[in-house]
Computed example of a mutant assay.
Amino acid sequence: MNNIAPLAITMGDASGIGPEIVAKTLARRGERAVVFGSRVVMEDIVRRLGLHMAIRLIAGPGEAQFKDRVIEIVEVTRIEVPPPLGVVNAIAGQAAFDTIVAAIDAAKAGEVSGLVTAPINKEAMARAGIGYPGHTEILAEYGGAERVAMMLANEEIRTVLVTIHTSLRRAIDQADFDAQMAAIRLAHEGGRALGIASPRVAVAGLNPHAGEGGLFGDEEIRIIRPAIEAARAEGIDASGPWPGDTVYMQARKGRFDIVVAQYHDQGLIPVKYLGLEEGVNITLGLPFVRTSPDHGTAFDIAGQGIADPASLQTALAYARRLIAAQTGTKEPERTV
Results as ranks from 00 to 15, higher is better:
83 P>Q: 11
254 G>M: 14
155 E>Q: 15
89 N>T: 10
95 A>H: 03
170 R>K: 14
166 T>N: 15
10 T>Y: 04
228 I>G: 03
166 T>V: 15
189 E>M: 12
269 I>T: 07
88 V>A: 08
183 A>W: 05
57 L>F: 11
131 G>F: 03
132 Y>C: 03
185 R>V: 13
140 A>S: 13
197 A>G: 04
38 S>L: 08
246 T>E: 04
285 G>R: 02
181 M>V: 03
299 F>Y: 13
239 S>F: 00
266 Q>M: 14
12 G>S: 07
60 G>N: 15
57 L>A: 11
308 D>N: 15
276 L>V: 15
60 G>I: 07
101 V>T: 12
76 V>T: 14
219 E>R: 10
93 G>F: 05
297 T>Y: 03
30 G>P: 10
39 R>A: 00
121 N>K: 00
200 R>V: 09
26 L>T: 01
318 Y>C: 02
178 D>M: 09
238 A>H: 03
33 A>N: 09
159 T>Q: 12
285 G>F: 06
233 A>S: 14
141 E>F: 09
169 R>N: 14
9 I>K: 04
179 A>T: 11
105 D>C: 09
169 R>C: 02
289 V>T: 05
117 T>N: 04
240 G>L: 07
10 T>E: 05
134 G>I: 00
59 A>N: 15
245 D>E: 14
83 P>G: 13
198 S>P: 00
34 V>D: 07
184 I>Q: 08
297 T>W: 02
68 D>N: 08
13 D>L: 04
207 N>W: 10
261 A>H: 10
131 G>E: 15
58 I>Y: 11
265 D>T: 11
335 T>K: 13
27 A>M: 13
230 A>F: 07
300 D>M: 14
131 G>Q: 09
163 T>P: 00
81 V>L: 12
259 V>W: 03
41 V>A: 07
199 P>T: 11
180 Q>W: 05
186 L>M: 10
105 D>K: 14
27 A>Q: 11
195 G>T: 13
71 I>G: 04
4 I>M: 14
197 A>R: 15
237 D>I: 05
21 I>F: 02
35 V>C: 08
328 G>E: 02
275 G>C: 13
150 M>I: 12
96 A>K: 01
49 L>I: 06
